[in-house]
């Protein structure tokens, strides 16, 4: 088995490295987009009553559709409907972002609704306007309490990113499958790639747990990780 490892994995490390890089940047960009979109959807849902239903529909759709279905839909239907995305990479990023934005919107919402009313009242009592209260009291606490869940969502994105290989994005999974299809020796390559994914994702969720514990001790906030 070690022999095979040297024959099939080692010479392809360059290719796998490129695939890993693509996985990393797709996940990073999708995560950033998901946070922005999710925050926006959450704010609309909580604070803009007449647009609430639009936000709810978006969030429910984003969460209820499997990532594979979203990938195919964004990749094949959107270019005809909207004219973009123009590349498979962006289709992957957008689909991943949509999927996670739904969960993040709900995460932010549960953070906002979980804040005790007294926090806001203390701000009102000293004469703070509501926008200041939102900016200085609500947002920091929501981010702190929800930080573990948010970091977890990045782990989820990395897991889901394995599927972008289906629309021919040359990510880590795609390269692994390419090597397997070429040489028909799947054991070493697939196990190696699986190990990379597992360690990456484990590191992310362990960090989330660590953050949860730290914040609980420092700020006395109960976090739902």
């Amino acid at each position: 088995m070690i022999d095979n490892f040297n024959r099939f994995v080692v010479p392809n490390l360059g290719l796998l490295g490129e695939g890993l890089w693509i996985t990393i940047w797709i996940c990073a960009v999708a995560f950033a987009m998901a946070v922005v979109i999710g925050a926006f959807a959450c704010i609309v849902r909580v604070y803009v009553p007449f647009l609430r239903i639009v936000a709810v529909i978006y969030i429910e759709f984003a969460r209820a559709t499997p990532i594979l279905v979203q990938l195919l839909w964004v990749n094949y239907v959107w270019p005809e409907l909207f004219g973009f995305p123009k590349s498979v990479e962006w289709a992957g990023v957008i689909a991943l972002a949509i999927q996670s934005s739904g969960y993040l919107a709900e995460t932010f919402r549960s953070g906002i609704e979980g804040l005790s009313r007294g926090q806001v009242e203390a701000g009102l009592a000293v004469g703070m306007p509501r926008t200041t209260i939102f900016r200085r009291i609500i947002v920091p606490q929501v981010l702190l309490v929800m930080a573990p869940s948010i970091v977890n969502q990045l782990a989820v994105i990395v897991k889901a990113s394995t599927l972008v290989s289906v629309i021919a994005i040359p990510d880590l999974m795609y390269d692994a499958l390419k090597i397997v299809n070429q040489w028909f020796e799947p054991i070493e390559v697939l196990t190696f790639v699986a190990a990379i994914y597992v360690t990456t994702i484990y590191t992310l969720s362990a960090s989330a747990k660590f953050i949860a514990d730290r914040f609980r001790v420092k700020y006395g906030l109960s976090t739902y990780a």
């Binding site: 926090q119 009242e121 203390a122 009592a125 000293v126 009291i137 606490q141 700020y219 006395g220 906030l221």
Partner: peptide
């Protein structure tokens, strides 16, 4: 101009 002290303190934990 009015100060209030709450039963639950309501200090901002962060």
């Amino acid at each position: 101009q009015i100060g209030m002290v709450f039963q639950q303190f309501n200090l901002w934990p962060h």
